[in-house]
Protein backbone atom coordinates (compact mmCIF):
# COMPACT_ATOMS: atom_id res chain seq x y z
CA UNK A 1 0.00 0.00 0.00
CA UNK A 2 1.37 3.39 -0.97
CA UNK A 3 1.49 5.93 1.80
CA UNK A 4 0.68 9.43 0.56
CA UNK A 5 3.54 11.89 0.87
CA UNK A 6 1.56 14.21 3.08
CA UNK A 7 1.57 11.65 5.94
CA UNK A 8 5.34 11.10 5.76
CA UNK A 9 6.69 14.43 6.95
CA UNK A 10 9.63 12.91 8.81
CA UNK A 11 11.12 11.42 5.67
CA UNK A 12 10.59 14.52 3.58
CA UNK A 13 11.43 17.18 6.11
CA UNK A 14 14.10 16.05 8.58
CA UNK A 15 14.58 19.70 9.60
CA UNK A 16 10.98 19.88 10.71
CA UNK A 17 11.54 16.82 12.90
CA UNK A 18 14.63 18.48 14.32
CA UNK A 19 12.55 21.53 15.14
CA UNK A 20 9.94 19.35 16.84
CA UNK A 21 12.79 17.78 18.80
CA UNK A 22 13.92 21.26 19.89
CA UNK A 23 10.39 22.26 20.81
CA UNK A 24 9.86 19.14 22.90
CA UNK A 25 13.20 19.56 24.58
CA UNK A 26 12.50 23.20 25.35
CA UNK A 27 9.02 22.39 26.64
CA UNK A 28 10.34 19.67 28.91
CA UNK A 29 13.20 21.84 30.03
CA UNK A 30 11.12 24.88 30.80
CA UNK A 31 14.07 27.12 30.05
CA UNK A 32 16.46 24.99 32.13
CA UNK A 33 18.79 22.12 31.31
CA UNK A 34 17.05 18.85 30.38
CA UNK A 35 17.22 16.13 33.07
CA UNK A 36 16.71 12.50 32.06
CA UNK A 37 18.36 10.89 35.10
CA UNK A 38 18.47 11.82 38.79
CA UNK A 39 21.04 14.09 40.38
CA UNK A 40 24.20 12.84 42.07
CA UNK A 41 23.81 12.07 45.77
CA UNK A 42 27.02 12.30 47.75
CA UNK A 43 25.59 10.38 50.71
CA UNK A 44 24.59 7.47 48.48
CA UNK A 45 28.04 7.50 46.91
CA UNK A 46 29.66 7.39 50.38
CA UNK A 47 27.30 4.70 51.71
CA UNK A 48 27.85 2.50 48.65
CA UNK A 49 31.62 2.75 49.11
CA UNK A 50 31.26 1.80 52.79
CA UNK A 51 29.03 -1.16 51.96
CA UNK A 52 31.51 -2.37 49.34
CA UNK A 53 34.29 -2.23 51.93
CA UNK A 54 32.19 -4.08 54.51
CA UNK A 55 31.34 -6.92 52.13
CA UNK A 56 34.94 -7.22 50.98
CA UNK A 57 36.07 -7.27 54.63
CA UNK A 58 33.49 -9.91 55.57
CA UNK A 59 34.43 -12.24 52.72
CA UNK A 60 38.15 -11.75 53.37
CA UNK A 61 37.55 -12.66 57.01
CA UNK A 62 35.74 -15.82 55.87
CA UNK A 63 38.75 -16.60 53.71
CA UNK A 64 41.56 -16.09 56.21
CA UNK A 65 39.99 -17.28 59.45
CA UNK A 66 39.28 -20.91 60.31
CA UNK A 67 37.02 -23.18 62.34
CA UNK A 68 34.03 -21.90 64.29
CA UNK A 69 34.70 -18.27 63.31
CA UNK A 70 33.77 -18.87 59.66
CA UNK A 71 30.60 -20.90 60.21
CA UNK A 72 27.18 -19.64 59.27
CA UNK A 73 26.14 -19.88 62.93
CA UNK A 74 28.89 -17.49 64.02
CA UNK A 75 28.09 -15.02 61.22
CA UNK A 76 24.35 -15.24 60.67
CA UNK A 77 23.89 -11.77 62.19
CA UNK A 78 25.86 -10.22 59.34
CA UNK A 79 23.15 -10.90 56.76
CA UNK A 80 20.16 -9.06 58.30
CA UNK A 81 22.48 -6.23 59.35
CA UNK A 82 23.87 -5.82 55.82
CA UNK A 83 20.40 -6.12 54.25
CA UNK A 84 19.20 -3.30 56.52
CA UNK A 85 22.08 -1.10 55.38
CA UNK A 86 21.40 -1.78 51.68
CA UNK A 87 17.68 -1.12 52.12
CA UNK A 88 18.46 2.20 53.80
CA UNK A 89 20.49 3.30 50.75
CA UNK A 90 17.74 2.04 48.43
CA UNK A 91 15.13 4.11 50.27
CA UNK A 92 17.31 7.21 49.84
CA UNK A 93 17.75 6.38 46.14
CA UNK A 94 13.96 6.00 45.77
CA UNK A 95 13.53 9.55 47.05
CA UNK A 96 15.18 10.89 43.87
CA UNK A 97 13.04 11.17 40.73
CA UNK A 98 14.27 9.39 37.58
CA UNK A 99 16.44 7.04 39.61
CA UNK A 100 14.88 3.70 38.63
CA UNK A 101 18.16 2.16 37.47
CA UNK A 102 19.95 2.77 40.75
CA UNK A 103 16.94 1.55 42.74
CA UNK A 104 16.90 -1.65 40.66
CA UNK A 105 20.63 -2.11 41.33
CA UNK A 106 20.03 -2.09 45.10
CA UNK A 107 17.27 -4.68 44.61
CA UNK A 108 19.74 -6.90 42.77
CA UNK A 109 22.28 -6.38 45.56
CA UNK A 110 19.73 -7.56 48.13
CA UNK A 111 19.04 -10.66 46.04
CA UNK A 112 22.78 -11.39 45.79
CA UNK A 113 23.08 -11.05 49.56
CA UNK A 114 20.29 -13.59 50.06
CA UNK A 115 22.09 -15.95 47.66
CA UNK A 116 25.36 -15.54 49.55
CA UNK A 117 23.57 -16.41 52.78
CA UNK A 118 22.09 -19.47 51.08
CA UNK A 119 25.56 -20.57 50.00
CA UNK A 120 26.90 -20.02 53.53
CA UNK A 121 24.11 -21.87 55.32
CA UNK A 122 24.68 -25.58 55.96
CA UNK A 123 22.38 -28.39 54.93
CA UNK A 124 18.98 -28.76 56.55
CA UNK A 125 19.32 -29.53 60.24
CA UNK A 126 22.97 -28.39 60.21
CA UNK A 127 22.48 -24.80 59.03
CA UNK A 128 24.81 -23.26 61.60
CA UNK A 129 27.70 -25.55 60.62
CA UNK A 130 27.78 -24.35 57.02
CA UNK A 131 30.82 -22.55 55.62
CA UNK A 132 31.55 -20.78 52.35
CA UNK A 133 33.76 -22.92 50.10
CA UNK A 134 37.28 -21.49 50.34
CA UNK A 135 38.00 -21.69 46.60
CA UNK A 136 34.76 -19.87 45.80
CA UNK A 137 35.27 -16.93 48.17
CA UNK A 138 37.46 -14.89 45.73
CA UNK A 139 34.75 -15.31 43.06
CA UNK A 140 32.01 -14.17 45.44
CA UNK A 141 34.17 -11.20 46.46
CA UNK A 142 34.96 -10.22 42.85
CA UNK A 143 31.27 -10.33 41.92
CA UNK A 144 30.19 -8.18 44.88
CA UNK A 145 33.03 -5.72 44.26
CA UNK A 146 32.12 -5.49 40.59
CA UNK A 147 28.46 -4.88 41.38
CA UNK A 148 29.29 -2.16 43.91
CA UNK A 149 31.74 -0.57 41.48
CA UNK A 150 28.97 -0.46 38.84
CA UNK A 151 26.57 1.17 41.31
CA UNK A 152 29.17 3.77 42.30
CA UNK A 153 30.15 4.38 38.65
CA UNK A 154 26.55 5.23 37.75
CA UNK A 155 26.15 7.47 40.80
CA UNK A 156 29.33 9.40 39.97
CA UNK A 157 28.22 9.74 36.32
CA UNK A 158 25.22 11.73 37.56
CA UNK A 159 27.50 14.59 38.64
CA UNK A 160 26.93 17.62 36.42
Amino acid sequence: MTIPNRVRPARRHPQVMALVFVALAVMSAGGCAVRLISDYDEQIDRSASELQKEMDGFLTQMEIEEGEAVTYGANRGFYPYYALEVRAVRVRAQAHPQNERSVAQYGLMLDSLAELEEAHRGDEGFEDEGTLPLEAIPVFRDLFNQAWAAIIHLEVAKKR
Binding site: S102, Q105, L108, M109, S112, F144, Q146, A150
Partner: peptide, 10 residues
Protein backbone atom coordinates in the same frame (compact mmCIF):
# COMPACT_ATOMS: atom_id res chain seq x y z
CA UNK B 1 23.50 -12.89 36.82
CA UNK B 2 22.68 -10.08 39.28
CA UNK B 3 26.12 -8.52 38.83
CA UNK B 4 25.75 -8.70 35.03
CA UNK B 5 22.38 -6.92 35.26
CA UNK B 6 23.88 -4.32 37.60
CA UNK B 7 26.70 -3.61 35.13
CA UNK B 8 24.23 -3.40 32.23
CA UNK B 9 22.04 -0.97 34.19
CA UNK B 10 25.12 1.22 34.62
Amino acid sequence: RNTTLTVLLT
